[in-house]
């Protein structure tokens, strides 16, 4: 397999913020990679550096074996992308918008009709872009990303803010693409399910650093013994600060739902210890379950935040 995207030790800082702090990434031909991370993790900065929109302070970025410098034209032809938020020219129709972008790639009407079908916007060709729904707008952004049949596709949060149905529409377009072409994809997302459904490879980042990387199975089978204990209390809920300081293990406490989770690597030894701790503090358990770790749990354990926060 040919590597399509190669990043080596990429750094980028804004004043005092180290947005990307030494990231390596390799994406092979036909591979779909998800970058998961909480707000401000550095996802957009990373993706925009791959897109050639931002320049890294240091490190190396190669796409199809080429550096950005001196190869802008070739790479612009090879890449398709959607930004985290783009709005279009308000009073241009869907058709006209696609036609405009098609002209940038020397493509004509036929390709516009074709792509409209791919993203299922045939019914909206004459609508002004300002009158599109959120899902339709994201599909138009996707159509613009796909119009040049890119070898490399880079999507920054393509489904954020959409309802589950609209999200699934986009997934099916991308899954279809995966089966029919050997386009490589990098997408950023807050949705674990999205990464799970679409991507072969997942990279979890926070504060500009890679925390874990691998396939879904690899991520979840690392420390196979790790188990998740989820619990809730009889009222009153304890204040969350109490746990952090005194509990022997890191606890994630969801204040809103009154639920907590802990990640245990040695359940026989640690569970009794945890129960003892609760007893001495006088907390009475209402509900408790032990389950296999999910990506969500892993993410929470690694970053101290929930994916959907």
């Amino acid at each position: 397999m040919k590597p399509v995207i190669q990043l080596k030790s990429v750094h980028k800082a804004f004043q005092s913020v180290r947005a990307v702090n030494g990231i390596d990434l390799t994406v092979f031909e036909g591979q779909f990679t998800a970058i998961l991370g909480p707000n401000g993790a550095g996802k957009t900065t990373l993706v925009e550096m791959i897109e050639g929109i931002q320049r890294p302070d240091s490190g190396e970025i190669r796409i199809l074996g080429l550096e950005w410098k001196g190869n802008e034209k070739t790479l612009h032809h090879a890449i398709g992308l959607s930004l985290q938020e783009t709005r279009f020219i308000d009073r241009l129709t869907v058709w006209e918008t696609l036609r405009l972008f098609a002209s940038f790639y020397d493509l004509g009407k036929d390709r516009v009709s074709e792509i409209l079908e791919t993203v299922n916007l045939q019914g909206k060709t004459g609508a002004y872009t300002m009158n599109l729904s959120g899902g339709q707008r994201q599909r138009l952004a996707l159509a613009l990303a796909l119009i040049n049949r890119p070898k490399v596709l880079l999507l920054d949060e393509p489904t954020t803010g959409l309802d589950p149905n609209a999200r699934r529409d986009i997934w099916s377009i991308l899954l279809d693409l995966k089966h029919r072409s050997n386009t490589s994809l990098v997408l950023t997302t807050h949705y674990m399910e999205e990464a799970e459904q679409l991507c072969d490879n997942i990279m979890i980042i926070d504060k500009g650093l890679v925390l874990r990387e691998g396939t879904m199975d690899q991520l979840l089978s690392e420390d196979a013994a790790e188990k998740i204990i989820a619990f809730s209390f009889e009222t009153p809920h304890p204040p969350c600060g109490d746990f952090d300081k005194k509990c022997p293990f890191p606890v994630y406490w969801d204040e809103k739902n009154g639920k907590g989770t802990i990640l245990l690597s040695n359940i026989e030894g640690q569970l009794p210890q945890f129960l003892d701790f609760l007893n001495t503090r006088g907390f009475r358990i209402k509900n408790m379950e032990c389950r296999r770790k999910t990506l969500d749990d892993l993410f929470t354990a690694l970053t101290g935040r929930r994916l959907d926060e």
């Binding site: 897109e51 050639g52 929109i53 034209k73 612009h76 032809h77 890449i79 992308l81 930004l83 938020e85 783009t86 709005r87 279009f88 020219i89 972008f101 940038f104 790639y105 613009l144 040049n148």
Partner: peptide, 16 residues
């Protein structure tokens, strides 16, 4: 207007 909508950014990421 196009700069604030990030549309300029999107357009120069093409061979325009």
């Amino acid at each position: 207007d196009k700069r604030s909508k990030k549309l300029l950014r999107r357009m120069v990421a093409t061979p325009m």
